[in-house]
Amino acid sequence: MMQQSLILVGKGKLEWKRKALESIEKDEVLIQTIAGAISIGAELPQYKESDVTDLNPKYPRETGYESFGRVIEAGEDVLEINVGDHVLAFYGHKDYGVVKADKVVKVPETIDYTYALLNTLSCDSAKGVMKLKPDKLDHVLVTGSGTMGLLTLHFLKEYMNVEKVDVLEPNKARGKLAKTFGANNVYLSEEEVPREHYKCGFECSSSKNAFDAILKALKHNGEVCVLSDGNKDVFSLNEDFYKKELKIVGSSDGWDYQQHSQWFFENIKKLEYVNSIFESHIHSHELIDCFAYLSETNECPIKVLVRYPGS
Protein backbone atom coordinates (compact mmCIF):
# COMPACT_ATOMS: atom_id res chain seq x y z
CA MET A 1 0.00 0.00 0.00
CA MET A 2 1.19 3.52 -0.85
CA GLN A 3 1.03 6.36 1.68
CA GLN A 4 0.82 10.01 0.68
CA SER A 5 2.24 12.54 3.17
CA LEU A 6 2.36 16.33 3.11
CA ILE A 7 5.98 17.34 3.70
CA LEU A 8 7.41 20.80 4.39
CA VAL A 9 10.59 20.93 2.30
CA GLY A 10 11.50 24.57 2.91
CA LYS A 11 10.05 27.93 3.89
CA GLY A 12 6.58 28.09 2.34
CA LYS A 13 7.22 24.95 0.29
CA LEU A 14 4.97 21.93 0.69
CA GLU A 15 5.03 18.75 -1.37
CA TRP A 16 3.04 15.53 -1.35
CA LYS A 17 5.43 12.58 -0.99
CA ARG A 18 4.53 8.95 -1.68
CA LYS A 19 6.09 5.88 -0.16
CA ALA A 20 5.24 2.22 0.26
CA LEU A 21 4.04 1.19 3.70
CA GLU A 22 5.65 -1.82 5.31
CA SER A 23 3.64 -4.51 7.06
CA ILE A 24 2.34 -3.41 10.45
CA GLU A 25 3.79 -4.77 13.69
CA LYS A 26 1.80 -6.97 16.07
CA ASP A 27 0.92 -4.00 18.32
CA GLU A 28 0.05 -1.54 15.53
CA VAL A 29 -3.02 -0.52 13.55
CA LEU A 30 -3.34 0.79 10.00
CA ILE A 31 -5.72 3.74 9.70
CA GLN A 32 -7.34 5.21 6.60
CA THR A 33 -7.74 8.93 7.16
CA ILE A 34 -11.22 10.39 7.02
CA ALA A 35 -10.48 13.89 8.33
CA GLY A 36 -7.75 16.00 9.84
CA ALA A 37 -7.16 19.60 10.83
CA ILE A 38 -4.83 22.53 10.36
CA SER A 39 -3.87 24.02 13.70
CA ILE A 40 -3.23 27.64 12.66
CA GLY A 41 -1.25 28.66 15.74
CA ALA A 42 1.10 25.68 15.63
CA GLU A 43 1.50 24.96 11.92
CA LEU A 44 1.47 28.37 10.23
CA PRO A 45 4.60 29.67 12.02
CA GLN A 46 6.46 26.53 10.91
CA TYR A 47 5.31 27.07 7.33
CA LYS A 48 6.37 30.74 7.38
CA GLU A 49 9.61 30.15 9.34
CA SER A 50 8.36 32.66 11.92
CA ASP A 51 8.39 30.32 14.92
CA VAL A 52 10.50 32.08 17.58
CA THR A 53 11.08 28.74 19.32
CA ASP A 54 12.62 27.19 16.19
CA LEU A 55 15.09 29.67 14.72
CA ASN A 56 17.02 27.10 12.68
CA PRO A 57 14.41 24.72 11.21
CA LYS A 58 15.57 21.50 9.57
CA TYR A 59 14.00 20.12 6.40
CA PRO A 60 12.28 18.03 5.24
CA ARG A 61 9.73 17.84 8.05
CA GLU A 62 6.30 16.26 8.46
CA THR A 63 3.21 18.39 8.95
CA GLY A 64 0.10 18.21 11.12
CA TYR A 65 -0.77 16.05 14.09
CA GLU A 66 -4.57 15.68 14.42
CA SER A 67 -6.08 12.76 12.49
CA PHE A 68 -9.39 10.91 12.50
CA GLY A 69 -9.88 7.71 10.55
CA ARG A 70 -11.08 4.14 10.25
CA VAL A 71 -8.98 1.15 11.23
CA ILE A 72 -8.49 -1.11 8.19
CA GLU A 73 -5.95 -3.52 9.69
CA ALA A 74 -4.94 -4.48 13.25
CA GLY A 75 -1.91 -6.42 14.48
CA GLU A 76 -2.46 -9.82 16.04
CA ASP A 77 -1.69 -8.55 19.57
CA VAL A 78 -4.22 -5.70 19.35
CA LEU A 79 -7.25 -6.56 21.50
CA GLU A 80 -9.07 -3.30 22.25
CA ILE A 81 -9.23 -1.91 18.69
CA ASN A 82 -11.02 -3.69 15.85
CA VAL A 83 -11.07 -3.29 12.09
CA GLY A 84 -13.80 -0.80 11.27
CA ASP A 85 -13.43 1.23 14.46
CA HIS A 86 -13.14 4.99 14.21
CA VAL A 87 -10.14 6.41 16.04
CA LEU A 88 -8.15 9.57 16.72
CA ALA A 89 -4.40 9.51 16.19
CA PHE A 90 -1.43 11.86 15.83
CA TYR A 91 0.16 11.23 12.43
CA GLY A 92 -0.84 14.45 10.68
CA HIS A 93 -1.48 15.21 7.01
CA LYS A 94 -1.39 11.70 5.54
CA ASP A 95 -3.97 9.54 3.79
CA TYR A 96 -2.92 6.47 5.79
CA GLY A 97 -1.23 6.17 9.17
CA VAL A 98 0.45 3.35 11.07
CA VAL A 99 0.17 3.85 14.84
CA LYS A 100 0.75 1.87 18.02
CA ALA A 101 -2.66 0.69 19.15
CA ASP A 102 -2.23 2.02 22.68
CA LYS A 103 -1.69 5.53 21.28
CA VAL A 104 -5.04 5.89 19.54
CA VAL A 105 -8.34 7.10 21.00
CA LYS A 106 -11.40 5.06 20.07
CA VAL A 107 -14.31 7.24 18.96
CA PRO A 108 -17.94 6.12 19.43
CA GLU A 109 -19.95 5.80 16.20
CA THR A 110 -22.35 8.46 17.50
CA ILE A 111 -19.64 11.16 17.56
CA ASP A 112 -19.06 13.12 14.36
CA TYR A 113 -15.44 13.75 13.43
CA THR A 114 -15.94 17.52 13.55
CA TYR A 115 -16.33 17.11 17.30
CA ALA A 116 -13.97 14.18 17.84
CA LEU A 117 -10.97 16.01 16.35
CA LEU A 118 -11.21 18.64 19.10
CA ASN A 119 -10.55 16.10 21.85
CA THR A 120 -6.77 16.46 21.45
CA LEU A 121 -6.54 20.19 22.11
CA SER A 122 -9.33 20.03 24.68
CA CYS A 123 -7.19 17.58 26.63
CA ASP A 124 -4.18 19.89 26.26
CA SER A 125 -6.14 22.83 27.65
CA ALA A 126 -7.60 20.66 30.44
CA LYS A 127 -4.11 19.77 31.64
CA GLY A 128 -3.26 23.45 32.04
CA VAL A 129 -6.52 24.26 33.78
CA MET A 130 -6.03 21.43 36.26
CA LYS A 131 -2.57 22.74 37.11
CA LEU A 132 -4.18 25.88 38.55
CA LYS A 133 -7.45 24.29 39.70
CA PRO A 134 -9.56 27.46 39.97
CA ASP A 135 -12.49 27.32 42.37
CA LYS A 136 -16.06 27.83 41.28
CA LEU A 137 -16.16 31.41 42.59
CA ASP A 138 -12.69 32.52 41.43
CA HIS A 139 -12.45 35.25 38.80
CA VAL A 140 -10.53 33.87 35.81
CA LEU A 141 -9.12 35.59 32.71
CA VAL A 142 -8.39 33.90 29.38
CA THR A 143 -6.34 35.79 26.79
CA GLY A 144 -7.17 34.85 23.21
CA SER A 145 -10.20 33.05 21.81
CA GLY A 146 -8.59 30.93 19.17
CA THR A 147 -8.84 27.15 19.47
CA MET A 148 -6.90 26.89 22.74
CA GLY A 149 -8.68 29.85 24.30
CA LEU A 150 -12.16 28.58 23.42
CA LEU A 151 -11.44 25.03 24.57
CA THR A 152 -9.94 26.37 27.80
CA LEU A 153 -13.07 28.45 28.32
CA HIS A 154 -15.20 25.39 27.55
CA PHE A 155 -13.36 23.25 30.12
CA LEU A 156 -13.46 25.97 32.77
CA LYS A 157 -17.21 26.35 32.36
CA GLU A 158 -18.30 22.77 31.70
CA TYR A 159 -15.91 20.72 33.84
CA MET A 160 -14.61 23.06 36.54
CA ASN A 161 -17.94 24.95 36.80
CA VAL A 162 -16.18 28.30 37.16
CA GLU A 163 -18.87 30.97 37.19
CA LYS A 164 -16.89 34.05 36.17
CA VAL A 165 -14.55 33.71 33.21
CA ASP A 166 -13.62 36.77 31.15
CA VAL A 167 -11.80 36.84 27.82
CA LEU A 168 -9.41 39.33 26.22
CA GLU A 169 -9.88 39.13 22.44
CA PRO A 170 -9.40 42.07 20.02
CA ASN A 171 -11.19 40.28 17.16
CA LYS A 172 -14.90 41.07 17.53
CA ALA A 173 -16.10 37.96 15.70
CA ARG A 174 -13.99 35.71 17.91
CA GLY A 175 -15.15 37.61 20.95
CA LYS A 176 -18.74 36.93 19.95
CA LEU A 177 -17.92 33.22 19.69
CA ALA A 178 -16.35 33.35 23.17
CA LYS A 179 -19.70 34.60 24.46
CA THR A 180 -21.33 31.53 22.93
CA PHE A 181 -18.83 29.37 24.84
CA GLY A 182 -19.82 31.04 28.11
CA ALA A 183 -17.54 34.06 28.58
CA ASN A 184 -19.01 36.57 31.03
CA ASN A 185 -17.16 39.60 29.64
CA VAL A 186 -15.12 40.02 26.46
CA TYR A 187 -12.54 42.81 26.35
CA LEU A 188 -11.40 44.13 22.99
CA SER A 189 -8.23 45.79 24.26
CA GLU A 190 -5.70 45.41 27.09
CA GLU A 191 -6.79 48.77 28.49
CA GLU A 192 -10.30 47.45 29.19
CA VAL A 193 -9.09 44.61 31.41
CA PRO A 194 -9.48 45.48 35.13
CA ARG A 195 -6.23 45.48 37.11
CA GLU A 196 -5.58 43.23 40.10
CA HIS A 197 -8.97 41.57 39.67
CA TYR A 198 -8.29 37.92 38.82
CA LYS A 199 -7.15 34.96 40.90
CA CYS A 200 -5.72 33.16 37.86
CA GLY A 201 -5.37 33.45 34.12
CA PHE A 202 -4.65 31.38 31.04
CA GLU A 203 -2.50 32.74 28.22
CA CYS A 204 -3.77 31.31 24.92
CA SER A 205 -2.89 34.06 22.43
CA SER A 206 0.92 33.92 21.94
CA SER A 207 0.80 37.73 22.17
CA LYS A 208 3.32 39.58 24.35
CA ASN A 209 0.81 42.42 24.84
CA ALA A 210 -1.81 39.98 26.10
CA PHE A 211 0.74 38.30 28.38
CA ASP A 212 1.66 41.70 29.82
CA ALA A 213 -2.04 42.46 30.35
CA ILE A 214 -2.69 39.20 32.16
CA LEU A 215 0.14 39.90 34.63
CA LYS A 216 -1.33 43.33 35.34
CA ALA A 217 -4.81 41.83 35.79
CA LEU A 218 -3.82 39.25 38.42
CA LYS A 219 -4.17 39.80 42.14
CA HIS A 220 -1.30 39.41 44.60
CA ASN A 221 -0.04 35.80 44.55
CA GLY A 222 -2.06 35.15 41.40
CA GLU A 223 -1.18 32.41 38.93
CA VAL A 224 -1.00 32.24 35.15
CA CYS A 225 -0.69 29.15 32.98
CA VAL A 226 0.82 29.62 29.53
CA LEU A 227 -1.12 27.36 27.16
CA SER A 228 -0.13 29.04 23.89
CA ASP A 229 2.78 27.67 21.91
CA GLY A 230 4.89 30.76 22.59
CA ASN A 231 5.95 30.68 18.94
CA LYS A 232 4.72 34.13 17.90
CA ASP A 233 6.15 36.64 20.40
CA VAL A 234 8.87 36.49 23.05
CA PHE A 235 7.33 37.03 26.48
CA SER A 236 8.96 39.17 29.18
CA LEU A 237 8.15 39.71 32.84
CA ASN A 238 6.84 43.15 33.81
CA GLU A 239 6.98 44.79 37.23
CA ASP A 240 3.66 43.21 38.26
CA PHE A 241 5.28 39.76 38.24
CA TYR A 242 7.75 40.76 40.95
CA LYS A 243 5.61 43.24 42.88
CA LYS A 244 2.65 40.90 43.22
CA GLU A 245 4.78 37.73 43.59
CA LEU A 246 2.99 35.95 40.78
CA LYS A 247 3.44 32.35 39.73
CA ILE A 248 3.81 31.26 36.09
CA VAL A 249 3.51 27.65 34.95
CA GLY A 250 3.76 26.14 31.50
CA SER A 251 1.73 23.29 30.09
CA SER A 252 2.24 21.14 27.01
CA ASP A 253 0.36 18.17 25.57
CA GLY A 254 -2.57 16.51 27.31
CA TRP A 255 -2.90 14.73 30.63
CA ASP A 256 -4.46 11.54 29.14
CA TYR A 257 -6.20 11.70 25.76
CA GLN A 258 -8.15 8.46 26.18
CA GLN A 259 -9.40 9.30 29.68
CA HIS A 260 -10.25 12.85 28.67
CA SER A 261 -12.28 11.61 25.69
CA GLN A 262 -14.70 9.84 28.04
CA TRP A 263 -15.78 13.20 29.46
CA PHE A 264 -15.40 15.22 26.26
CA PHE A 265 -17.43 12.94 23.98
CA GLU A 266 -20.26 12.80 26.50
CA ASN A 267 -20.21 16.55 27.13
CA ILE A 268 -20.30 17.67 23.51
CA LYS A 269 -23.49 15.70 22.83
CA LYS A 270 -25.38 18.58 24.48
CA LEU A 271 -23.21 21.43 23.16
CA GLU A 272 -23.57 21.57 19.39
CA TYR A 273 -21.71 24.89 19.10
CA VAL A 274 -18.30 23.42 20.01
CA ASN A 275 -17.45 22.42 16.43
CA SER A 276 -18.00 26.03 15.29
CA ILE A 277 -14.25 26.32 16.01
CA PHE A 278 -13.81 24.90 12.49
CA GLU A 279 -14.42 28.09 10.53
CA SER A 280 -13.12 26.66 7.26
CA HIS A 281 -13.60 23.25 5.59
CA ILE A 282 -11.37 22.01 2.76
CA HIS A 283 -10.47 18.76 1.00
CA SER A 284 -7.02 17.25 1.41
CA HIS A 285 -6.00 18.08 -2.17
CA GLU A 286 -6.46 21.76 -1.26
CA LEU A 287 -3.97 21.70 1.63
CA ILE A 288 -1.02 23.24 -0.23
CA ASP A 289 -3.12 26.10 -1.62
CA CYS A 290 -4.74 26.60 1.78
CA PHE A 291 -1.39 27.05 3.53
CA ALA A 292 -0.35 29.56 0.87
CA TYR A 293 -3.55 31.52 1.42
CA LEU A 294 -3.27 31.43 5.22
CA SER A 295 0.28 32.78 5.03
CA GLU A 296 -0.93 35.87 3.15
CA THR A 297 -4.23 36.77 4.80
CA ASN A 298 -4.77 38.77 7.98
CA GLU A 299 -8.12 37.08 8.63
CA CYS A 300 -7.23 33.46 9.36
CA PRO A 301 -10.00 31.07 10.41
CA ILE A 302 -9.73 29.75 13.94
CA LYS A 303 -9.21 26.21 12.69
CA VAL A 304 -9.41 24.41 9.34
CA LEU A 305 -11.12 21.02 8.94
CA VAL A 306 -9.54 18.80 6.27
CA ARG A 307 -11.63 16.08 4.63
CA TYR A 308 -10.02 13.14 2.84
CA PRO A 309 -11.45 11.10 -0.06
CA GLY A 310 -14.30 8.88 1.05
CA SER A 311 -15.26 10.99 4.07
Score class of each variant (00 low, 15 high):
residue 19 K to A: 11
residue 290 C to E: 13
residue 64 G to S: 12
residue 253 D to R: 12
residue 266 E to P: 01
residue 118 L to D: 09
residue 56 N to E: 12
residue 214 I to K: 01
residue 51 D to I: 11
residue 248 I to D: 06
residue 131 K to H: 14
residue 134 P to Y: 07
residue 24 I to A: 11
residue 13 K to W: 05
residue 128 G to L: 06
residue 229 D to G: 15
residue 56 N to S: 15
residue 77 D to C: 03
residue 29 V to L: 12
residue 219 K to D: 11
residue 78 V to A: 04
residue 27 D to W: 00
residue 123 C to E: 07
residue 298 N to W: 01
residue 62 E to R: 13
residue 198 Y to C: 12
residue 295 S to G: 04
residue 32 Q to N: 14
residue 11 K to T: 13
residue 127 K to C: 06
residue 62 E to F: 10
residue 112 D to Q: 14
residue 167 V to G: 02
residue 43 E to I: 12
residue 107 V to E: 04
residue 122 S to P: 01
residue 216 K to S: 13
residue 226 V to Y: 05
residue 285 H to A: 00
residue 120 T to F: 04
residue 161 N to C: 10
residue 215 L to R: 07
residue 183 A to E: 08
residue 79 L to V: 14
residue 48 K to D: 02
residue 162 V to S: 05
residue 120 T to P: 00
residue 121 L to T: 11
residue 175 G to A: 06
residue 262 Q to M: 07
residue 275 N to M: 03
residue 35 A to S: 09
residue 96 Y to G: 04
residue 305 L to K: 06
residue 157 K to L: 10
residue 221 N to L: 08
residue 189 S to D: 13
residue 40 I to M: 01
residue 296 E to A: 14
residue 67 S to D: 10
residue 301 P to D: 00
residue 41 G to I: 12
residue 93 H to T: 05
residue 300 C to G: 04
residue 267 N to V: 10
residue 150 L to W: 10
residue 51 D to Y: 08
residue 144 G to W: 05
residue 222 G to T: 11
residue 298 N to F: 07
residue 86 H to V: 06
residue 1 M to G: 12
residue 296 E to Q: 15
residue 136 K to Y: 13
residue 283 H to Q: 13
residue 79 L to W: 06
residue 24 I to N: 12
residue 73 E to I: 02
residue 37 A to H: 01
residue 278 F to R: 01
residue 311 S to Y: 04
residue 86 H to K: 10
residue 165 V to Q: 03
residue 93 H to A: 08
residue 25 E to G: 11
residue 18 R to M: 10
residue 70 R to K: 15
residue 41 G to F: 09
residue 311 S to Q: 05
residue 55 L to H: 09
residue 148 M to G: 09
residue 53 T to S: 01
residue 98 V to W: 09
residue 13 K to A: 11
residue 186 V to K: 09
residue 278 F to V: 07
residue 230 G to K: 03
residue 40 I to K: 10
residue 282 I to E: 05
residue 29 V to Y: 06
